[in-house]
Design a protein around this nucleic acid. Sequence first.
DNA 1: GCCGTTTTCGGCCCGACTGTTTTCAGTCG
Length: 572
Amino acid sequence: MTNREIADVLDQIGDMLEIQGENVFKVRSYRRAAETIGRCRFAITGATASEQLRELPGIGESLSQLILEVAATGTCPLREQLLAVIPQGLLDVLRVPGVGPKTAGALFHQLHVTDIRSLEEACRSGAVAALPRMGAKSQERILEGIALLQRSAGRILLSEAAAIAARVIEQLPPPCEPVVAGSFRRGRETVGDIDILAVEVQGLDPMAAFTGMPEVEQVLLHGDTRSSVVVKGGVQVDLRVIPRPSMGAALQYFTGSQQHNIRVRERAGAMGLRLSEYGLFDADDRQIAGASEAEVYGALGLDWIPPELREDAGEVARAAEHALPRLVELHDVRGDLQMHSQWSDGAHTIRQMAEAARARGLDYIAITDHSKALGVANGLDEDRLLRQIDEIRALNQELEGFTVLAGCEVEILADGRLDIADEVLAELDIVLACVHSGLNAPSEAITRRMVRAAEHPHVCIIGHPSGRLIGQRDRTALDLDALIRTCVDTHTALEVNSGPQRLDLCDHDVRRALEMGAHLVISTDAHSAESLSWLTYGVQTARRGWATPDRVLNTRPVAGLRAFFTMDGGNP
DNA sequence: GCCGTTTTCGGCCCGACTGTTTTCAGTCG
């Protein structure tokens, strides 16, 4: 069982307990444990898992035993017991907007609803409207909820969310200063819905502009302070209008995460204060903070916490000790170490990529076209690679104060050898090694393959190490710890690939790699000049992994970068 | 179920919106 699978079981138990009307705080402990296990950086199946588990926050005696049992057997008596009473399909019913645990329980017990299909039938027959505290409108809402669920996009990529958010903000009146909060602001790799906040301005009606946008498919709510719409593609967008003195508290609150907010509000409670989206209030209900986030955190004795860290993963305690790391920022990054040109499968010339990168404020780039084993991408063989190196050297003669490094995204072959001869690799400034085939290989095979590449004296960087494509392809069975260990030993960097579909290493892996002492590079893998803008997603992912600039090699000037890769004496 | 400069028992974040109700329960974030 992977940690993710264990977390899913915990969530499932939480759902079923909730439907049974179990104590909400008990339910919350299962949910919280699921969160914690989902991002936990050691394998629960490991031998030492038992002691490590007990050290995790929110996991006590009974949960740790349950988790170990699930890890070993895939299930546990509690889950089996619940599954004997509650049909699996009822858990899907919980995902229908407007149906919560209480409603699901009533639907099951009184109308024998067991899945979405039987729920729909119960609605069409009018039986749902006859339930206590339900009516025609509730029934209609549930039907709409089912339709919404069926055409909803689910979670979308960060880049897709960015495009939607930008379009919405464009259509809101500028004086209301709209900003995006939520998981988008935290830089999560996928976004469920888009939360936008706007300042209340006399005589301005952003709600009307919002619900009237041409891309709105359905208005879910339309209130004075909050409206919700579904835009084309099935994505939900929320707008909230906030009085200016509350803007900081609202931004803090709506940025989340929910677990982070609970942690912060508990702290407020312990200080005799009350924190809501309207501000921080004392016992006499006087507002003592709220206009800015820094003010709110500050009044709670906390340093301002970057949104990317707000996952209840220890950041509140660190903020209280004034010991948060200084995270890498977009403007720290001076170069981009993976991109493609027309030589292989890119859309633009080397010069065009260089000029676009320079316009974005970078000092250097590496051109890393594919190598010959990736025939579908028009990969370069040794001859073409040597000619490309000549072109890059010539271009550098013309560019003042900007450097194009000659690189290559070299294929790691099945046995861990590279597909370009060593004497040609020696001519390159940057060798990036990647796997694009055999991604379903067993753990030992893929690990041996990648470790061997990392040991190669010319290899500087292992690119998109996990091989996952978000929503399309799982990560390979690679033993990441083994690869990280090798990278630390050989002065090889691990890439944080900024492609919105990759974000690989992911946030948890970044934190793991840094804890083990590795160095990173953040690269765009751009196949066109426009995609150089992806850098921001990679930076956010690194920040979510608590990355500091000193551990991100491409924050260094080009000379410092080269120095790192030659420290083991074997690299170019 | 977890946890402890309020506590080893009794707490556990907080408010808007909706629908079905004459005061509130359920859902959502």
